[in-house]
Design a binder for these strands. Structure first.
Length: 772
DNA sequence: AAAAAACGCTTTTTT
DNA sequence: AGCGTTTTTT
C-alpha cells in the first residue's frame, strides 16, 4: 500500500514525502509536483500510521486549492482503507488561513469575545464601514482618504499590531491610529470582523488562552502549508504559535536550558516546536508582497524551526524546454533568490511566439484567430488561457471573443457574491441574524426605496449615538416608515426562524440549526420575495431593464447557490452560508462543464496550467505595471509575476503586445515590456518583424513621409513632424514614445513617455529628439 | 423623496 | 470609459 503511494515519485519528491517527523522546507519550483508532494505527504503520514487525520492541519491560500487537496486525498486513501481503519478526511483541518481561523473563532466565539453569528466584512464592506465611521468622527476624507485608512488598518493588523501598538510619531499618523481604534470598537459593537481581524483575533485567542492553545498544539502534530512564500507576518506568527514555537523571541526568550545542560540529547523538534511544520513554497513565485506577503518568512522559518531539511524540487513536469529556459533566463534578473533552476526531461518544443499589434483591438483579434486555429487543430478551448496583468484588459478580449463566437469564461473580476443585488439580498439575511450589523441595515433600510431618506437616517444615527445603541435599536423606537421597515425584517425573521442559537462544539461541524429553521433555499426565496427586491427589479423599465433582468437572474442564481450549498455542506445554517459568501466570493461559477477559453489575470493563474497560454499586454508600464516602479522591489515582484505567467504553459506560449491601447478612457502609447527583452533571442519566434532589427521608417505604423530618402536627421522645427505613438530617442532620457503634441512651430511641445525617465513635456526647440 | 444629470475620480494584483 | 457620489430637477 505504501509503495504504491510513493511509486512514480522522483527521488527528491520521495525524500520530501517520507521525511521524518521534523519541520522542513520544500522549495518547489513551478510544475515540480508541489501539490502532489503535499498531499502524498499527508497520505503517507496517515497510511503509515504515524499520524491520524485529527493530527493534520493543512493550510492553503485559496479555497480551490483546499478543495483540490481534499479531492486528491480521498483518491489516495482508498475507500477500503478508510473503512478498515476508520480513516476519512473529516478529522483533518484543511482550508485557507481565513477559513481555519473562522472555524476556530466560531467554535470558541465566547472566549474570543464574539457573537456566535458574527459576520465577515469583505473589503468593500470594510471600506464603507470606515467611511461611515469617519463621517461620525468628523474626519476630513480629503486629508484622510478612506482607502488609505483602510490600507493602514489592514496593513497593521497583518503585521500583528493593534491600534494601541502602532507607533505614531506625527499627528497625522496619530489621527489614523485613533480611527483605527474607533473602527475596531465599532466592529466589536456591531459583531463583525474583517479579513485581517479573523487572523488577528484567532491569534490572540490562542496566545491568551493557554488551555486552548495547548489543546490545538497537542492535536495538530503536523502542520502543512502550501504556497508558504505568500504568508504574511501575522500568518507566520499564527503558525508558530500553533506549532508551539515561542512566538516572540524578544519578549519570550527560548526555552530554559535543558535539564542535563548544553549537550543534552533531546530531539531538536521538541526543543523548538511541539509540531512539525512542513512548508512548501517557491520564492520565485512570491507575487503578493503588495498585500503584506513576506518572503523573508522562508528564512525565518529555517531559523525559528531549526529546519535541517531543505529539499529542492527542480524537475519540471509541465513545460517544454524552451518555455522553461525562457522562465529561467527571466528570473535570473532578480537579485536575492534562494536559487533554483528548473529543468525538464521533455524536448525543447517550439519557440515562443511573439506578436506585435498596432492596437489592443488588433492584439485581441490576433489572439482570437490563433485560439480558433488551435481549436481546429484539436486543442480544447479549456486547455488554453489568455492572461493579462489587470482586469481592465479583459474587455477588449471579451468583445473580440463574442463577435467571433468563441465561448470563454472570465475568472476573477466581478465576483458573484460581490454584485450589488446579491449584497443587498445578503444584507437582509445578515440583519435578520444579527441586528447589530449597522452596515447591513444602512445598505437596505431604503432599498428598495421605501421613503426613508437621508434625513430620517441621520436622525436614527443621532438617536443611536445619544443612547449608545445600534441603529436597529434606534429604529425599533422610531415610528412611521422606519417602524414598517423594522416590522418587515421582524416578520421575515420570524417566518424563517433562524432564532435558536445552536451551540457549536469544539472542532466539530455544526449540524443545521434544529428543525425549527426553514431550509436555506426557502429562506432565500422568502427574503427575496418579501423584501421587495424582486419586485423592484421587475418594475424597472427603459434603459435599465436589461440590467435589471440580469440582476433578477443573479438573484435566482443565489437561490441555486443556496441549494447547492445545502447539498454540499454538513453545516447548512444561515451563518455558514453567509460565511461562505464572504470567504469564497469567487468560487461560485455557473456552467463549469462547457469547454471554454480561460481569461484571467496572471495572479489568478497561479497554480494552473494550460497547453497554450497567451501573455498579453506586454508593454512597459502595464506589465511591468507603472506603480511597481515606485515601490522597493516592485519590479522584481513584477518579474516574478511574469515568471509565473510563463510557467503556466505546457507546450505553446504566445507573448503579445500593442503599440497603442485604450486605457482609462484614453489612448496610451507604450514601449514593449522590458521583460520581453530579457528573454534570449533564440527562444523567440517573431510573428511580426522583430523590433530591434526593424527600420522604423519602413514599418507599417511609422509616419508616412513623402520623401523618405531625404533628411536623415529630421529636425522638427517645422510643425508636427511628430505624432502620437511615435518612438523617439532623447540624448539624456533615452527611448520613449510620443504621447501628445501641443502647438506647432518653434514653441511647440511634445509629451514623451520615456522608458527610463517616465513621462515628460519637452520643448521641441531644445529637446533634440530623434525618431527611432 | 425619487429620478436625472452633472461631476469627478480612479484604474494592479486578492484571501 | 465606467463608476460612485453629489447636485439639480421633477
Amino acid at each position: 500500500m505504501i509503495p504504491s503511494l510513493l511509486s512514480g515519485l522522483n527521488p527528491e519528491q520521495r525524500a520530501a514525502v517520507t521525511l521524518p517527523e521534523q519541520s522542513a522546507l520544500i522549495l518547489a519550483g513551478a510544475g515540480s509536483g508541489k501539490t502532489r508532494v503535499l498531499t502524498t505527504r499527508i497520505a503517507w503520514l496517515i497510511s503509515s500510521g504515524q499520524a491520524s487525520p485529527q493530527n493534520i492541519l493543512a493550510v492553503t491560500f485559496t479555497n480551490k486549492a483546499a478543495k483540490e487537496m481534499l479531492t486528491r486525498l480521498s483518491a489516495m486513501l482508498p475507500p477500503s482503507t478508510m473503512l478498515r481503519t476508520g480513516i476519512n478526511t473529516r478529522g483533518m483541518w484543511i482550508g485557507t488561513f481565513h477559513g481555519l481561523c473562522n472555524r476556530m473563532l466560531r467554535a470558541h466565539h465566547r472566549e474570543a469575545n464574539l457573537p456566535q453569528t458574527f459576520q465577515i466584512l469583505d473589503s468593500a464592506d470594510q471600506l464603507s464601514a470606515i467611511k461611515r465611521l469617519m463621517k461620525a468622527m468628523n474626519v476630513d476624507d480629503e486629508k484622510y482618504p478612506p482607502r488609505e485608512v483602510q490600507f493602514f488598518i489592514s496593513g497593521n493588523k497583518e503585521e500583528g499590531l493593534r491600534a494601541s501598538e502602532v507607533e505614531a510619531f506625527d499627528p497625522y499618523t496619530r489621527r489614523k491610529v485613533e480611527i483605527f481604534a474607533e473602527y475596531d470598537a465599532q466592529c466589536q459593537r456591531e459583531g463583525v470582523v474583517d479579513f485581517a481581524e479573523l487572523l488577528l483575533r484567532c491569534y490572540e485567542l490562542l496566545s491568551r488562552n493557554q488551555q486552548l492553545r495547548e489543546h490545538y498544539q497537542a492535536r495538530f502534530k503536523h502542520i502543512l502549508v502550501d504556497e508558504f512564500q505568500d504568508t504574511n507576518k501575522l500568518q507566520y506568527q499564527w503558525l508558530k504559535l500553533l506549532a508551539g514555537v515561542a512566538e516572540n523571541r524578544k519578549r519570550l526568550p527560548l526555552p530554559n536550558p535543558l535539564p542535563g545542560g548544553e549537550g543534552a540529547t533531546v530531539s531538536l523538534r521538541d526543543d523548538f516546536s511541539t509540531s512539525a511544520l512542513f512548508a512548501v513554497g517557491d520564492d520565485d513565485q512570491s507575487i503578493y508582497a503588495f498585500r503584506g506577503a513576506n518572503v523573508g518568512n522562508m528564512q525565518e522559518l529555517l531559523r525559528d524551526f531549526h529546519v535541517q531539511n531543505v529539499i529542492k524540487l527542480e524537475q519540471n513536469y509541465r513545460s517544454h524546454g524552451n518555455i522553461l529556459n525562457a522562465a529561467n533566463a527571466l528570473i535570473q534578473h532578480n537579485r536575492s533568490r534562494l536559487g533554483k533552476n528548473l529543468w525538464t526531461a521533455e524536448h525543447q518544443g517550439e519557440a515562443l511566439r511573439v506578436y506585435e499589434a498596432p492596437t489592443d483591438t488588433e492584439e485581441a483579434r490576433f489572439i482570437v484567430e490563433e485560439v480558433r486555429q488551435l481549436n481546429r487543430e484539436g486543442v480544447r478551448l479549456s486547455g488554453m488561457a489568455v492572461l493579462y496583468r489587470s482586469n481592465a484588459q479583459s474587455r477588449v478580449l471579451e468583445h473580440a471573443l463574442v463577435s467571433a463566437g468563441v465561448s470563454y469564461r472570465v475568472y476573477g473580476g466581478l465576483r458573484f457574491f460581490e454584485r450589488q443585488e446579491i449584497k443587498h439580498a445578503l444584507a437582509y439575511l445578515r440583519l435578520m441574524q444579527n441586528t447589530d450589523d449597522d452596515n447591513a441595515l444602512l445598505r437596505i433600510i431604503n432599498f428598495p426605496t421605501r421613503g426613508i431618506g437621508a434625513r430620517s437616517i441621520e436622525q436614527l444615527q443621532e438617536s443611536a449615538k445619544i443612547n449608545s445603541t445600534t441603529l436597529w435599536d434606534a429604529a425599533a423606537r422610531a415610528g412611521g416608515k422606519v417602524a414598517a421597515f423594522v416590522g418587515l425584517v421582524e416578520s421575515m425573521r420570524s417566518t424563517c426562524r433562524e432564532l435558536p442559537l445552536h451551540p457549536q462544539g469544539v472542532g466539530r461541524g455544526v449540524p443545521g440549526a434544529s428543525g425549527s429553521t426553514l431550509p436555506l433555499p426557502e429562506i432565500m426565496d422568502h427574503v427575496l420575495q418579501h423584501s421587495g427586491l424582486i419586485a423592484h427589479y421587475q418594475n424597472e423599465t427603459g434603459a435599465k431593464q436589461r440590467e435589471a433582468q440580469e440582476r433578477l437572474e443573479n438573484l435566482n442564481e443565489l437561490i441555486n447557490a443556496a441549494t447547492l450549498f445545502v447539498h454540499e455542506n454538513e453545516d447548512d445554517s444561515l451563518t455558514a452560508f453567509l460565511t461562505h459568501a464572504a470567504l469564497e466570493a469567487g468560487e461560485h461559477q455557473a456552467g463549469d462543464s462547457d469547454d471554454a477559453l480561460h481569461l484571467m489575470t496572471v495572479h489568478a493563474a497561479k497554480g494552473l496550467e494550460f497547453d497554450a497560454v497567451f501573455i498579453t499586454g506586454l508593454e512597459e508600464g502595464l506589465f511591468p505595471h507603472q506603480n511597481s516602479k515606485m515601490t522597493d522591489g516592485g519590479l522584481d515582484e513584477e518579474r516574478r509575476l511574469m515568471y509565473v505567467a510563463i510557467t503556466r504553459a505546457r507546450r505553446r506560449l504566445y507573448l503579445t503586445f500593442a503599440q497603442s491601447r485604450m486605457l482609462h478612457g484614453q489612448v496610451d502609447y507604450s514601449l514593449v515590456s522590458s521583460f520581453l527583452r530579457e528573454l534570449p533571442d533564440e527562444l523567440l519566434h517573431w510573428i511580426t518583424p522583430r523590433i530591434a532589427a526593424r527600420n522604423p521608417f519602413t514599418a507599417s505604423f511609422a509616419p508616412q513621409r513623402d520623401a523618405p530618402v531625404a533628411a536623415p536627421v529630421p529636425r522638427p522645427a517645422s510643425s508636427s513632424g511628430w505624432h502620437a505613438g511615435q518612438r523617439v530617442f532623447h540624448q539624456k532620457f533615452g527611448e520613449g514614445v510620443v504621447l501628445d503634441i501641443k502647438g506647432g512651430g518653434a514653441d511647440g511641445q511634445v509629451q514623451v513617455n520615456f522608458k527610463r525617465a517616465g513621462t515628460k513635456w519637452l520643448a521641441l526647440e531644445y529637446a533634440k529628439l530623434e525618431p527611432l
